[in-house]
Write a protein that binds this DNA or RNA. Structure first.
Length: 259
DNA sequence: ATGGCCTGATCTTCAGGA
């Protein structure tokens, strides 16, 4: 089976590309982040015509996650159990379901904004809650993975120029320690192949020709448990999808499983 | 060609992204 994660930066703006991409790649399960729409606005009908079911957790212009599957969507859980609120609101940043033989999460980890910002504290709390919520499935015998936009570059090599990120979010020891704690529940980082250059970046800013200059970051990750990792046959970043007019600023990360 | 931000709403200006 083919499973992928993609921060689409608005599903309504991106739906023509998403439909064409699902069809051309034959992806079975797609984890989506930043739907930027209400649940009612989500283009479920167009996806259904292509043979995919959708499960959505979204409230409006910010955030929003979804699962798109042609292998079924069972036991859907919307939201992060035990997750923190930000300014009194529980933001739609996590959804999980069973798709055929695999249990998956689609997550959109809070950005953090600045290291001294309340959003950064919220980000660390959110990652700690994710660890607690994922621990049981991570240690289980069923293939399980947390996929999504983690908004953390696990190591310096995951940033095009680490010197420009000194003192910034996405690279701090505390954020990386939160990822390490998540891995300690039994998850490993499924490293994708880059289709060009030496590092599998997944995000390139829209500004300042970041993509043609390959000024990117690897922040969209696949954290799989041992049965999931053992079934991985291939993984790559589809940087072709970052090209051209109407692209998201993130590229899909694709994983092929033998399950 | 891969080309100097994009998206949706608070809508002609802004927050948020990272």
């Amino acid at each position: 089976m083919r499973i992928a994660t993609w921060n689409v930066n608005s599903i309504t703006a991106r739906i023509p590309r998403v439909l064409a991409w699902l069809e051309s790649t034959g992806t079975d399960v797609l984890c989506v982040q930043e739907t930027k729409c209400s649940a009612e606005q989500f283009p479920a009908d167009e996806l259904r015509e292509l043979g995919y079911e959708s499960a959505v957790h979204a409230t409006g212009r910010w955030n929003g996650v979804a699962l798109i599957s042609r292998l079924g969507l069972e036991d859907v859980v919307r939201g992060l159990p035990g997750g923190p609120a930000y300014e009194g609101a529980e933001e739609p940043r996590a959804i999980s379901a069973t798709c055929g033989p695999v249990r998956v999460w689609s997550v959109y980890v809070p950005n953090g904004r600045e290291v001294d910002h309340a959003h950064y504290t919220y980000k660390l709390q959110w990652l700690a809650a994710l660890k607690e919520a994922a621990a049981t499935d991570a240690a289980g015998a069923r293939p399980f993975a947390v996929l999504g936009d983690f908004n953390v570059a696990p190591v310096d090599e995951d940033v095009w120029d680490p010197s420009l990120f000194e003192g910034a979010t996405h690279v701090t020891p505390a954020e990386r320690a939160a990822l390490a704690a998540l891995r300690e529940t039994g998850l490993s980082d499924v490293m994708p192949r880059p289709l060009k250059y030496d590092r599998p970046y997944t995000f390139w800013d829209y500004r300042q020709l970041a993509f043609p200059k390959n000024r990117g970051m690897r922040i969209d990750l696949v954290y799989g448990n041992e049965p999931f990792a053992a079934a991985v046959k291939d993984s790559y970043v589809d940087r072709e999808e970052r090209k051209g007019k109407g692209a998201s600023d993130h590229a899909p990360v694709v994983v092929d499983l033998d399950v």
